[in-house]
Simulated scan of single mutants.
Amino acid sequence: MKHEQGFDVTAAEFAPLHHTPQDWRDRFAFRLVKLMRIIPDKFFAKRYGHRAVVLETVAAVPGMVGGLLQHLKAIRHIRDDQGWIKELIEEADNERMHLMTFIEIAQPSKFERFLIMAVQLIFYNAYFFLYLLAPRVAHRVVGYLEEEAVTSYTQYLAEIDAGNIENIPAPQIAKAYWNLPDDARLREVVIVIRQDEAEHRDTNHHFADKIVERAAP
């Protein structure tokens, strides 16, 4: 997503929003996401660039799956999709650009590249059936995943600001996609990606809420 962004923001000034679970479906989605976070936390710890590579592999799946199934549903019911398909496909492409950016930054090992393929294989199939059977829960899962992503990128930014992670020059792919200045660095990349994740968080929680509204008597 190409957007204007101020880069003087600090990690502490960005307040992550949280959707409070309203029923057992929301609680299931929330607990599932918390469970999914355990392995990356243990495996990558504060290696935020490498963590981002694997997590963005997961994040790039839901938009494409949701867009595909919404497309088929719109055709099946011969109705307008109200913009959902475009929004979801754009989300998937945006997450793919996050992945491509962090591939340049982190330079993942062969094992991590294998992990990317394994994670994608497992998550794609699991999410496909989740969205097929329970789209509200699927969107809520993504909303909570994006909440965790915002938290992770906020921690990443704090480590950069503290001098614990080198503020290296931004890769060219990031400067071109987000229209960053020529002298942009890692800090600016983390800020724009965090903003993207916040937008995806809000979009998916909104979609879940709309499904609740449609189901209401």
Score class of each variant (00 low, 15 high):
195 Q>L: 10
183 D>K: 10
175 K>Y: 08
206 H>P: 01
175 K>H: 08
202 D>E: 14
173 I>E: 04
207 F>K: 06
187 R>E: 11
181 P>M: 04
184 A>P: 03
200 H>T: 04
213 E>F: 11
181 P>W: 05
176 A>F: 12
175 K>T: 08
180 L>F: 03
194 R>Q: 12
203 T>N: 09
196 D>A: 07
200 H>C: 06
176 A>Q: 15
204 N>E: 13
188 E>Y: 08
209 D>F: 10
179 N>I: 06
186 L>V: 04
174 A>N: 07
175 K>G: 05
196 D>F: 05
210 K>S: 11
191 I>W: 00
168 I>M: 11
208 A>W: 05
201 R>C: 08
167 N>F: 08
169 P>R: 02
188 E>S: 06
194 R>V: 02
183 D>R: 07
198 A>T: 10
193 I>E: 00
188 E>L: 05
178 W>L: 03
214 R>H: 12
183 D>G: 09
185 R>L: 03
188 E>N: 09
214 R>F: 12
187 R>A: 07
202 D>H: 08
210 K>P: 00
175 K>A: 05
209 D>L: 07
208 A>R: 02
190 V>C: 07
207 F>I: 11
203 T>D: 08
173 I>Y: 04
177 Y>K: 09
203 T>M: 14
198 A>Q: 07
192 V>D: 01
182 D>M: 10
210 K>L: 15
185 R>S: 10
192 V>A: 05
207 F>W: 13
209 D>V: 08
176 A>W: 12
179 N>H: 13
168 I>R: 08
182 D>Y: 05
209 D>K: 09
